[in-house]
């Protein structure tokens, strides 16, 4: 059932999963400590005939420690999480490695339109390949995508890449990915875009260099023929 959790098909998928794991360990620790303390106190101080309730104001120094020290430790954990989060965020969303290929992705109700640069590797030339809902990329190449939308908000999300970015009408947003394994993965729309949101599914086909080249020559010629 969870086989797809293991799929990491992009260069930064591992970083994001690592961050999730780091947070899971840190907050998991606090969660278990807090819940454990909570249930133990409930059990220990349940109503018993031989036990009277104590009068504690919370101003007692030796008791106040039990709140202030964990409190400071929470802050320390926060700092670790912030550092991890900002590093991953910088790599994925701020830093932009040099592209090998640039593609254009446009969302519309309710399909993805992909513009591949074709054999000459340049957009907006005669041999561009346009496809709907099927994106073809080559493995181990760095891609930039220029994301826009024709009508409403959409979201270009490839769970296997751990990649997600809103497509905003009127704006062009640039992102990148670097596929690391071949295969066909889901592209989901992750921003509600009308009644067809649930069918706005695309596929990303990651091909090895050879397959990709033959796909490209096949489709570039048919487009030219039309």
């Amino acid at each position: 059932m969870f086989e797809r959790l293991a799929i990491q098909a992009s260069s930064f998928a591992g970083d994001i999963d690592g961050l999730i794991l780091l947070i899971a360990v840190l907050v998991g620790f606090w969660f278990i400590v807090a819940e454990g303390m909570f249930f133990w106190l409930i059990w220990r101080f349940r109503e018993r005939p031989d036990q009277k309730s104590q009068y504690i104001t919370g101003k007692e120094k030796h008791l106040k420690r039990w709140v202030t020290i964990p409190h400071a430790l929470v802050l320390v954990c926060d700092v670790f999480i912030i550092i991890g989060a900002v590093r991953v965020w910088y790599d994925v969303k701020q830093h932009l490695p040099e592209p090998d290929t640039v593609i254009r992705v446009e969302g519309q109700q309710w399909a993805w339109v992909f513009q591949h640069p074709g054999p000459d590797n340049e957009l907006d030339t005669g041999d561009d390949i346009w496809t709907t809902d099927d994106l073809y990329v080559e493995v181990d190449r760095t891609y930039h995508f220029r994301l826009s939308s024709r009508d409403v908000l959409h979201n270009f999300s490839v769970p296997a890449f751990r990649l997600k970015q809103d497509a905003v009408p009127g704006r062009t947003i640039t992102g990148w990915f670097h596929a690391t394994s071949t295969g066909t993965y889901d592209i989901q729309c992750a921003e509600i875009c009308g009644i067809g949101h649930g069918v706005m599914a695309g596929r990303i086909n990651i091909q090895d260099a050879e397959t990709h080249a033959s796909w490209m020559s096949e489709n570039a010629t048919t487009t030219a023929a039309q």
Binding site: Q94, L96, S148, P169, G170, R171, T172, I173, T174, G175
Partner: peptide
């Protein structure tokens, strides 16, 4: 801004 352009504006 960083990695985005508001073409429409």
């Amino acid at each position: 801004g960083l990695r985005w352009v508001n073409d429409a504006a």
